[in-house]
Design a protein around this nucleic acid. Structure first.
Lengths: 195, 195
DNA sequence: CGCGAGCGTTCCGCAAACGGAACGGTCGCT
DNA sequence: AGCGACCGTTCCGTTTGCGGAACGCTCGCG
């Protein structure tokens, strides 16, 4: 689910015919930047000087009327001494919503030969979600904390009760579904071997 | 220290006369994006279609020859179903280096009236760091785990041994310094009241 | 009072990021 | 072999983010 076809309910990032106001995330970034700058106790002009960016750029950025470049963001956050993620985080970062599954990315373990992604997952009752196949070798591992989950390959789904663990190779289409009328809370670990 | 004058050793983000290659962070972002896309098992063309961006844009982004706009990043990460921070994180995110202090941002508590930032801090022996004043009302709180620390307002610094706690109002210039030849490990909590 | 210093915003020419189209290359199918 | 579908890269005209300069404003000081 996690990486699959957000085609359906994509958070309207349409570029066509943009009105004066920018996409939803932008003014959040601007406001966050202004707060960080004021916390640091420096003026807009001063920050522009330190970061080697124009005052116009900074002004437009804070007011949400510009759509900054990545290296503008780098310069500004570096001059403030904060990680670049400080500007982007906070807005539902890491939460992925599918048709019937909501998953929050808790952690990524990125080793040489394999990457793990750990999610906290909630499946509400009454709806099922089907996800297309992942790459070969990818496996998913779910531990159920609450509720009863049916998940796994479409033609051979597995059932897990609280405290139980299921896993399968997800290089085939697979589904997630809550059994009964309780939402399912679970942890989801996806393992991606390096090709 | 944390927010103060990274003027000295700024991670050269100079914009003047940029060579074909971009600033250090960029190709990391491109590589990370390519990995995410391949993990999702979709082609560059397919991702361009889903994200509503040009293939040229995506190609240039993955190869590090372009300096993407924030909303390009939004579109792409949204289409991949990953948080935007997935592209930026990983490279020393949250670590701030001063002349004699290295601090890692562990957590930010952002309430209505006040913001707290919690850092893990290491002060190597032999060097001192002076930080200019913060805004009025800002206070710092340090708990020493290891080593002996001298810190606080320049004209009245405090000394803390392992297990001890010091705090001061940081609206005046203040310093951090390890006493003796052991590095100091400590936690640093900065409290910023909303003006 | 006048005036210089600093603030944040707006205007402007230029560089570059953007999407669309065209390109060559590699498959799989008839 | 031929051919259509798709891949990722490159070219190109348009859009827009960029820094610098000018602007109006608010202070603090002589």
């Amino acid at each position: 689910m996690v990486h699959d076809s957000p085609m359906s309910a994509r958070p309207a990032t349409a570029r066509s015919g943009r009105p004066p106001a920018l996409e939803p995330g932008a003014e959040g970034v601007g406001a966050r930047l202004r707060r960080l700058r004021e916390q640091a106790g420096i003026s807009l002009s001063e920050l522009a000087r330190r970061a080697n960016v124009g005052k116009a750029t900074l002004s437009g950025l804070e007011n949400g009327t510009r759509n900054p470049t990545l290296d503008t963001l780098w310069s500004v956050t570096a001059a403030l001494g904060v990680p670049i993620t400080a500007l982007l985080a906070g807005q539902q970062a890491g939460t992925v919503r599918g048709t019937a599954v909501e998953a929050t990315l808790l952690q990524v373990f990125d080793d040489d030969a394999v990457t793990y992604e750990l999610y906290r997952m909630v499946v509400p009752p009454g709806a099922a979600q089907v996800s297309p196949a992942h790459h070969a070798g990818v496996t998913e591992h779910i531990t159920v904390f609450d509720g009863v989950l049916r998940a796994g390959p479409i033609d051979a789904p597995l059932t897990a009760h609280p405290g139980e663990h299921v896993s399968w190779r997800s290089d085939v289409p697979h589904l997630y579904e809550a059994v009964g009328d309780h939402p399912v809370r679970a942890s989801l670990l996806i393992r991606y071997p390096r090709p």
